[in-house]
Design a protein around this nucleic acid. Structure first.
Lengths: 155, 155
DNA sequence: ATTCGTGCAAATAGTTTGCAGCAGA
DNA sequence: TCTGCTGCAAACTATTTGCACGAAT
């Protein structure tokens, strides 16, 4: 399963990597930021701000919002905007080393991770090359979402 | 170029197709709705509500919002939510027969269409099959975005 | 001592909605 | 006539921000 929490051995390595990026952005490592990163690392899927607040009620809403903006700029987290009421956040893929796509349920708004297949990645990169040659667009990331019904809602 | 306005010959065919879907959703065809569809059809890329209002200033903001919700439910338009301040709307792909992906500029928020290559579509569908078998997720659409710098912002 | 993160509460802004008038069936 | 679309203005809500306090350097 791709959607399982990391073993805690990886957790401190992750924190260090995060620390490094924060320093790179001229920012400190704080308990609040560690807590947010912990929640994201433990979720195994993109989470909303209410979910983060529920997971750790020592956090203040405004601090979570503020720090997520920060962490996004520092390249630590990635913001995912869907049609659902809340935005979702996940750790940057180059921190976790886990490139994946998203399964987005149109009914309930749930978002799950799905592992990226080598096949599709190869095809995407080829397509990116084509697009760059044709349009001059400089691609830094790509995003592939499958939109449909999750197992629960399909039932 | 994929990003060019349709010839006006297609325009009436498009209106008829839209008409049909509105009827299917138990809704009328109105001048406001025609106007919105026209703007979307003429743009060649996903547009924001302010852009729609600018393009046709006989439209009231609330009506545009309300009708876009309607048109989305009727399967006529598709809402695209990005990190930018405004949501964007485009005609449903199965109405225009034009499957494409998006080039999203992280700097200025511009969104352009890019034609979908056969290669990538084949790979994606294969991946979708894998995911459905593995997870039980029922995919109805997919979405591929290339995120990076547009020609202007790369300069 | 000074800089920066935190938390509360207030402000902002995209989007939604109540209601009265009007148009199409 | 009657249903339902329109447009104005007011309401809503996710997110942002001002400000004063506390922590870290």
């Amino acid at each position: 399963m791709a959607a399982t929490a990391q073993p805690s051995a990886d957790r401190s390595a992750l924190r260090d990597a995060v620390s490094l990026r924060l320093q790179g952005a001229g920012q400190r490592r704080t308990p609040t930021r560690d807590a947010i990163v912990d929640v994201l690392a433990g979720a195994g899927r993109p989470v909303t701000i209410p979910e983060i607040l529920d997971a750790d009620d020592s956090l203040a809403q405004s601090s979570v919002y503020r720090n997520l903006v920060m962490l996004e700029q520092a390249g630590v987290v990635h913001r995912i905007v869907t049609n659902a009421e809340f935005a979702r956040f996940e750790l940057a893929e180059d921190l976790t080393g886990d490139h994946h796509h998203h399964l987005i349920c149109v009914q309930c708004g749930a978002v799950e991770d799905a592992p990226a297949s080598a096949l599709i990645e190869r095809a995407v990169h080829q397509a990116i090359d084509e697009v760059e040659r044709a349009t001059g667009f400089r691609t830094t990331t790509h995003r592939i979402d499958l939109v449909g019904l999750c197992v629960d809602c399909a039932a």
